[in-house]
């Protein structure tokens, strides 16, 4: 059994114009710009799905745009544009992840050798805390970041306007059925995580309220 075909218009939104790609590979600045502008949104979504939580999407996109301008002229066929651009985006996001890890390790080893200079930040990690304490959107994205990579990318791409199963399948090189399944499983995972975090928050808030009531009651008794 197959899903109902999604609208063709949404598939065409990110269709590559071969003539435009050829002009871009010939070095026409306006074609390079036009090509980048028509693809930068989904590129941002790919980076968002792969980058470390603390990375700056803006900086990464600037780097990718520079790489795009520098290397688009080496493209051999227009069909290779999207897979190549996706690889550039993923590599940039992963490189950022490695950089952050190295920096963190260096700081930790320095802190271990000289504990006086570096003091551990004792502030609790609120990135995965309940939505009331953090920006709702960022909280959701943080939860997404904790999911397995193979589910993360299709799930985030599906949120980009015009990216339906077919478009995501063309972009990632995976069968449409696989994309559909991963999106469905990813949504289930996300719902469960959201429910768990909210329960935890509600539980913690409930416990804290109970604690206040108990201490208040004790106080009354004591007084």
């Amino acid at each position: 059994m197959k899903a109902k075909p999604q609208s063709q218009a949404s598939v065409d939104r990110y269709r590559v114009d071969p003539a435009l790609v050829v002009r871009a590979t010939e070095g026409h600045a306006e074609a390079v710009q036009q090509l980048w502008q028509s693809h930068r949104r989904w590129v941002a979504a790919i980076v968002l799905a792969h980058m470390p939580r603390e990375a700056d999407l803006d900086d990464l996109l600037q780097d990718i745009a520079a790489t795009f301008v520098r290397s688009v002229q080496e493209l051999r066929t227009p069909g290779a544009l999207r897979p190549w651009l996706r690889t550039v985006a993923i590599n940039a996001a992963r490189a950022e992840g490695r950089k952050k890890t190295r920096r963190r390790n260096a700081l930790e080893s320095q802190a271990a050798t000289d504990p006086g200079t570096f003091q551990r930040d004792e502030t609790p990690d609120t990135t995965a805390a309940a939505p009331e304490s953090a920006d709702e959107a960022q909280w959701l994205l943080d939860l997404i970041a904790q999911m397995p990579e193979s589910y993360r990318e299709p799930l985030v791409l599906r949120c980009v306007r015009g990216m339906n199963y077919k478009a995501i399948s063309e972009l990632t090189g995976l069968p449409e059925t696989t994309i559909e399944t991963r999106i469905a499983r990813g949504r289930r995972m996300l719902r469960e995580r959201v429910a768990m975090e909210r329960d935890r928050k509600t539980g913690a808030a409930g416990a804290s309220q109970r604690g206040v009531r108990e201490s208040g009651a004790n106080g009354e008794v004591n007084e």
Binding site: R40, A44, A65, L140, V160
Partner: peptide
């Protein structure tokens, strides 16, 4: 959330002056 996050891409042009 995703739309809000990736909207930043609209302000980033390719540095074609290079």
């Amino acid at each position: 959330a995703v739309q809000q996050a990736i909207a930043i891409a609209d302000g980033i042009d390719a540095p074609t002056q290079d």
